[in-house]
Structure formats: structure tokens, C-alpha cells
């Protein structure tokens, strides 16, 4: 049951989306450092502090962007006959499984950047603690719709 190798990767466009998101975040972070520096100019922060923070931010950004591919590759999903599974995580790997019969409702939504890439996010809700259920981003709109219909049909059959 678990060792099925048929886990599918997310849509390739989602990798681009992640890259865009991460680049935007990095630019904002770098800008914040400069803004902070200029605001506190009179306080004469020593140059080495400024330099150190630039280097730290630079290293973080390099790591943050270069790990995108690995993080993307770790995200995989599986639609089995009776359950849905999702794998993710870089340092801490997680594999969540939800039986179809426990699903209470399903949502499909798309943010502004997602809409540009024609992707959507599938959110699965069970009766467990809210916020701890499943959220699969980076599915093609039609694919998300397909999974939703499959599960809805299964629940109706029960």
C-alpha cells in the first residue's frame, strides 16, 4: 500500500512559480536591510555590521533559491483508489494519508500568481484539527478539478 512508487510530481510550472515567489521574497528582504541601514544612518552603525548582514542575507538568499529544486522534487502526491497521499519536506519529511471516506469537504482556489501560471491549490478538510489537514499547491486547474470530482463521487457512492 505505501510502497507504491506511483507518486506523481507537481506540475512543472509550479517550480517556476516557487522561483518567482522566492525571488520576490529575497528582493524584499535585501531591500529591508538597505532601508534599515539608511534610516539609522545618524546612529553610525559600524561598517562591518552592515557588511556582515549583507553577507548573511546573500548567503541565505543563495541557499533559499538553490534549494527550490530539491524542495519542489520532494513534493509528490498520490491519488489511490481509497485514499489520497501527499509527501513533502526538506529537513523534516512528511507523508500524509487521508482516506476518502474521512474527507468532509474540498476546496479549489487560485491566487493571483497561480492564476497567471494556470495552477490551483487543492485543500482537503477532515474532522481533525483545523489547519492540520492537507493542502496541495501546484496542480493544474483541470487536474485539481478531476481529483475533486473523483473524491466527491466516491463519497456519494458510500
Amino acid at each position: 500500500m505505501l510502497d507504491t512508487p506511483n507518486y506523481k510530481p507537481l506540475h512543472q510550472k509550479y517550480f517556476k512559480l516557487m522561483l518567482v515567489r522566492r525571488t520576490v521574497f529575497s528582493i524584499i528582504l535585501a531591500a529591508a536591510v538597505f532601508v534599515f541601514y539608511f534610516i539609522n544612518k545618524e546612529k553610525e552603525i559600524p561598517d562591518f555590521v552592515f557588511l556582515a548582514s549583507i553577507i548573511a542575507v546573500f548567503l541565505f538568499v543563495v541557499l533559499y533559491i538553490s534549494l527550490t529544486k530539491t524542495i519542489f522534487n520532494r513534493k509528490k502526491y498520490l491519488v489511490h483508489e481509497t485514499y489520497l497521499s501527499y509527501k513533502k519536506g526538506l529537513l523534516v519529511r512528511q507523508m500524509t494519508m487521508i482516506p476518502f471516506s474521512r474527507i468532509q469537504h474540498i476546496e479549489i482556489d487560485e491566487g493571483p500568481i497561480e492564476r497567471y501560471f494556470k495552477l490551483s491549490t487543492l485543500s482537503i478538510y477532515t474532522a481533525g484539527d483545523s489547519g492540520k489537514d492537507l493542502k496541495i499547491s501546484g496542480l493544474k486547474k483541470e487536474k485539481a478539478q478531476e481529483i475533486k470530482e473523483l473524491i466527491t463521487a466516491y463519497i456519494k457512492d458510500e
Partner: peptide
């Protein structure tokens, strides 16, 4: 159960160990 999760940190991975969270 509502959903089940296998959680494994990179240290756990190296030692061939994993935790199970039952929701």
C-alpha cells in the same frame, strides 16, 4: 482516524527511524 502522517527528520532518516502522528 481522520488522517495519518509519517514524520521523519533528517537525523531520523539517517538512523532509519520515523514517527507516526494519528489525527
Amino acid at each position: 482516524m481522520q488522517n495519518i502522517k509519517l514524520v521523519q527528520s533528517f537525523i531520523q532518516k539517517r538512523r532509519g527511524v520515523a514517527s507516526v502522528h494519528l489525527q
